[in-house]
Design a protein around this nucleic acid. Sequence first.
RNA 1: GGAAAGAUGCCGGAGUGGUUGAACGGGACGGUCUCGAAAACCGUUUACCGACUUUGUCGGUACGAGGGUUCGAAUCCCUCUCUUUCCGCCA
Length: 422
Amino acid sequence: MLQLQVIRQNPEWVKQRLAVKYFADGNIVDKILELDEQRKKLQLEFDNTQAKINSGSKEIGQLIAKGLKKEAELKKTEIAAIRNSLDPISQKLPVIEKQLQDELVKLPNLPSEKVPVGKTPQDNVVVGEGGNKPQLSSSSIPHWELIKKYDIVDFEIGAKITGSGFPLYKGKGAKLQRALIQYFLDYNTAAGYTEYLPPFMVNETTAFGTGQLPDKEGQMYYMQADNFYMIPTSEVPLTNIYRDAILKETDLPVKLTAYSPCFRREAGSFGKDVRGLNRVHQFDKVEIVQLVHPDKSYDVLEEMVSHVERLVQSLNLPYRILKLCGGDMSFASALTYDFEVYSAAQDKWLEISSVSNFETFQTNRMKIRFKDKTGKPQLVHSLNGSSLALPRILACLLENNQSADGIMIPTVLIPYFGESKI
RNA sequence: GGAAAGAUGCCGGAGUGGUUGAACGGGACGGUCUCGAAAACCGUUUACCGACUUUGUCGGUACGAGGGUUCGAAUCCCUCUCUUUCCGCCA
């Protein structure tokens, strides 16, 4: 959620920045300013009337204390009349406030000045790459065939148990997941991130805090009986740990990491992009989150990108880093880098991490603040990134490392996996 | 799932209708003292909204959340949420 203050101060600039994200409805900005004016006017009226009631009530108390019953009764009817005049205001005020809020949450975050102009994924800018694309033999096969060959992931039984898109990992497949999770977590904690294991279901307030609600209900699994949502990423519970908190400046940066399964309905996805492990309803991911001083968030973003880059490098996968253009960015982000690994048997780049700076967009919703040097509370900046998402990593490992001898496990994973190949 | 108790400021904890934004204690911060520190003493210490003569003054809101009674509610009533203890069930 954008800060009202920012919109007030420079509405035209806000509209310009929104246009970079191809958010066309600039009228919302004007509507917000208008509602804000109305709200202020009502607020003033309310405050003044309430002040009269408060001082009048105090007088009544004093009159009663002096035993001046008659005068007190007189005053009572006087105040009651003022009270009645307050009713229409106190009914109208929350309505306007709600309208203002409803408009405010419709606006996406403003893209940073660093965001490349562009509308589609073709306009994203490659800012880094590494690793070598493997030369596979003609007999090489895609991962959805490899998992059958080695009997390590079973989609049919997953579908039998739950439905399509719920893979069942088996044997060495299951163990490799565990190895990857543990390796990723160890890597993150070694860099100073505190490990958490959060709840996998969250309430409405929490889902609102990170921007999943409103409007993205359809992407989350929902437990009607309890009004809970299955988390689409552990970013949601992790960032909400600090909802409504006022931190000390010396507490920053706050660095959090967690493993969790992620649940996504992926309503509307279809076609060959969803084959095998490319797109599933439940997958495992290790996430990193940071809450930082506003002056430092863009440095921290770069630091998180290189943190993830070193992790990808350690797995010996060919990768590239994209800076997303305005049109391809998510609702809440101010600047996003995507990591993609090259899946050789599919001849395709697969997204395995997305690292973003949200500036105050999330923290304004959650009211995560710190006290600056003057003692005033100020919103912190929030950032997060995948470090890393597992299924596509697995797909690439299987495809790129296939050989006549089996699938070769990257050296860094051998201590966790216990073997050098599948 | 059943029963009981409870939810107050950074923390502990008073407060059952009228200067209580909140006693008392602790913490934190500032000061005095000291070579320095401890102790002692003095002082300060919430957030949000708004107005203005905008490093300040004033008004409003907030004692789990929402609603109600009243001239006036932390205090009375209703609903909900959460916590603790006991019982039941259970990995």
